[in-house]
């Protein structure tokens, strides 16, 4: 140690010590702060990832189960000989929640039917009572009724959801519906005429009324398993929906 150091006043020494202390405290604060920050960000990331993965839709399986369009407009998707459990889907092509249901759980329904684990029945109804949603829904429902082939019907059904218009604007216009029909593989010559004349609009409305009363529907989508409504918490989580249906199959 040099002479100069020893000569340092006590005052300066204390100052130095204080500075060192402050630096240490600052470092500690920084570490604590960053740790808390990293943990918080990680929690957010993990939570968001979990949410996304729990509502991730299933992979498309091989082949669709046979699909039959019935005379009342409902559509059955089931392997031959599979009669239960019955999964009834009451849906409206214009309803955003139905679109979301189709997005997350549509593939699960197709897979369950293809695996012979369920008989899936689609009931497209019109639940809206005000314009423009009512008109949109009726036009879409009518157009679906114009498709007689099951496979084409499912493809058309999926396209309708993919192209669902806003609830505040007129949509599902006749020309659009015709072209989506073609995209879905519809070749029947009277399809365009059927869509544009809204041939089945009345049938769509009366079926909606009838089924709504019979099934006491309050909202769409309503999903019933062997006649009993499955909760929203289940139907929007593909894995839980699958579990519920397979459990009912036993």
């Amino acid at each position: 140690m040099s002479k100069g150091d020893r000569a340092k006043s006590a005052r300066e020494k204390i100052k130095e010590q204080q500075a060192a202390e402050r630096a240490r405290a600052k470092r500690k604060r920084l570490v604590t702060y960053s740790t808390a920050g990293v943990v918080a960000v990680a929690a957010v990331g993990l939570g968001a990832w979990y949410a996304a993965s729990s509502s991730k839709s299933e992979q498309a399986g091989a082949e669709l189960a046979p699909v039959t369009v019935q005379s009342d407009g409902s559509v059955v998707m089931a392997k031959e000989g599979v009669t239960k459990p019955v999964v009834d889907i009451y849906e409206d092509f214009q309803c955003p929640a139905c679109k979301e249901f189709e997005r997350v759980s549509g593939q699960t329904l197709k897979n369950l039917a293809a695996e012979g684990k369920a008989k899936v029945v689609f009931h497209p109804i019109t639940i809206f009572s005000m314009e423009p949603t009512k008109g949109n829904s009726v036009r879409a429902g009518n157009a679906a009724r114009c498709v007689a082939d099951g496979k084409q019907w499912i493809a058309f059904h999926d396209l309708l959801y993919k192209n669902q218009p806003s609830e505040t604007a007129e949509g599902f216009k006749p020309d659009e519906l015709v072209s989506w029909g073609k995209d879905a593989g519809v070749t029947a010559p009277d399809f365009e005429q059927c869509v544009k004349s809204e041939k089945h609009a009345q049938a769509q409305l009366s079926y909606s009324q009838k089924i709504g009363n019979e099934q006491k529907l309050e909202h769409t989508p309503t999903v019933k398993l062997n006649g009993k409504e499955i909760e929203n918490n289940t139907i929007f989580l593909p894995q839980q929906l699958r579990d519920a249906v397979t459990k009912a199959a036993k």
Binding site: G47, A51, A52, S54, S55, P96, A97, E100, F101, V104, S166, T168, N232, N233, F236, L237
Partner: peptide, 15 residues
């Protein structure tokens, strides 16, 4: 948090 789909819909509803 229990119903991510609903949360997505609620956000989408604002357009």
């Amino acid at each position: 948090i229990g119903n991510p789909s609903e949360s997505v819909m609620a956000v989408s509803a604002y357009q």
